[in-house]
Each structure stands twice: as C-alpha cells, then as structure tokens.
Amino acid sequence: PAAAAAPPLPSDVRPPHILQKTLDYIVENIIQQLPDCESFLWDRMRSIRQDFTYQNYFGPEAIDCNERIVRIHLLILHIMAKSDVEYSRQQELEQLHKALITLSEIYDEVRLNGGFCPNEAEFRAYSLLSRIRDPEYDKMIQDLPENIFRDDKVQLAICFRRIISNSNYSERGYIRTENCMNLYARFFQLIQSPEIPFLMSSFLEVYVNEVRFYAVKSLSHSINRKHKPIPMSYLEQTLLFNNDEEIRNFCKYYSIDINGDGVLLTSLEHHSHILPDTKPLKQSYLLCVDGKLQMTSLVQLINSGSSNDIASPLLESK
C-alpha cells in the first residue's frame, strides 16, 4: 500500500533512536495485550521498519529493531494460532519474511565491511525456517563462516529442513527433488524437546498442518488398501493433536473418512496439502510449545540476545 503513497515529509520520519524507544515501549507495554492488539502491533512494527527504510539507515538501531520485530512476529504466530481472534496469518508471515530479508542484507553488508553482528546466527536460523524448502537457503548457509554454520540454532534449523524435506511434497510451482525423507515423527519428537527454544518452536508450528498432511499421505500410501481404521489415539500421539476434535476437523477438511473404530486413512485422495479454492485450515498450535512460552517472561523473550552496538563503529566507518 505504501508504494502508491507519496513519500513522507522528512519531519514525519522518526530518527533511529526514537524508533528504538518506540519499540522499547511496545515491548514493555503492548505485547502483553496479545492477542487483542495484534493488528495494532502489526501496523506499528511495519511503520518502524518503513521509517528506517525511508532514511536508508542500517545502523545498530535498525539491526536491533528488526531483530526484535522478528521475535515479536514469531511470538504473535503462536499466540494467534492459539486464540480465536481474527488475524491475517499471511500478512504476519509477509512482514516476518521482509524483516528477515532486511536483516540478511544488513548482516551481509556488515560482514563485507569486516564487521560482526552478535545475533546473526539466531536470525540466519529463522531465515532457514522461513523458506524451509528453498535450496537457495542451503547454499546461503554453507557460504557463511564456520561460527555461524556451527551455531546450535542454525544446526537445528538445518536438521528440521532435512526432517520434513519429503520427496512427496506437492505444491504448485514447487519442484520435488530426489531421496527426501519424511521423518514427521522426529519433527514432533524434537519440537517437544527443551533443546528447541520457544521462538523456533513457534516458527515450526507454522508447518504443523502440512507436516500432518504429509504424514497422513505417507501412511495412506504405504499401508495396505484393506488396512483397518487407525485409532484416533494413534494419530493423537504421533502427530501431536491436542484433542480428538482437532483430528475430526483435520479429517473433515481433507475429506478423510472416520468411523467408530478410527480414521480410514486410505480414503485420502488429495495429493497436496493445499486445496484449490478452499480457505486454508486454521494454523495449529501445540500444547508443548505453549508450555515453553509459559516458562518465560515476554519482555525477556523479545529483548534477548546481545547488544548490536558492538557492530556500530564498523558500520559507521563506511
């Protein structure tokens, strides 16, 4: 929408330190009111990013704000999935991707100038999860220095990319590739583990519906056509549904038959998790991920990481 609008007056653009203060205020006072304030937050965060862009400013305040904005989007994804408040997931993801791309560009630039951003690895890990099936990101991460590549979060993100790679994935415009394993059980096992931090788990929840779909597809293609119904409890355990009702909704959405004994997986006829001309299934959330959130304070969660001021002298010497 901003593309068509006239550029703002210089007097209307906030300087970097004010933008940082604005975000401080949001973190300390607004995010606690999620899910209700989601659209307000979305708007304010976008405008902070825009003000940096208008000034063509990529200094430490811009890095810091973009980093925290990514974390807030990741928090929002989980909270909104759990809530009944209406929101546009697609717009949330869009802003999240844009902030990640901005960060990647800044990190590249800082590195080219011999600088160093202390939180780069964390956000490179999120980038790997943001386009989880795009080989371009595998190339990107292999190009980066060893200390980034060997970072725990980056390594875990690399693992998740392999775990759900799956040669039977199908989506318009996507080219399937050879020998990909579909290790969905591992996906759910790991996401429960305390080793996977909340923000990363929240990002992974974005993929829960499709991981479940391809799990069911894999099962339905590998079991005998006359296989007896699969009990709800089996699916609940392996695919980490929170309750029977979620399974029923899922099966209804994909036209999978259920009878008194359980789910008739072989009745699945869809090949892609995306159904044409159909509203997507509401994003799932996992109780285990919610548990991780309960254990942290929101302010600490968003303000985690190291100060970016360390990158500043090098940036400004440009």
């Binding site: 390594q155 875990l156 693992c159 392999r162 775990i163 799956n166 040669s167 394993m181 579909n182 290790l183 969905y184 059980a185 591992r186 096992q189 790991l190 894999s218 099962l219 293609h221 590998s222």
Partner: peptide, 14 residues
C-alpha cells in the same frame, strides 16, 4: 539429531 531408531516407521513408509 536427524536420525533415530524410533524413526523406523517413517523410514519404512518413505
């Protein structure tokens, strides 16, 4: 981290 004995079902299905 990726591979584990418990993956057996998924391995066979794949």
């Amino acid at each position: 981290t990726i591979h584990a004995p418990e993956n057996v079902g998924n391995v066979l299905e794949t």
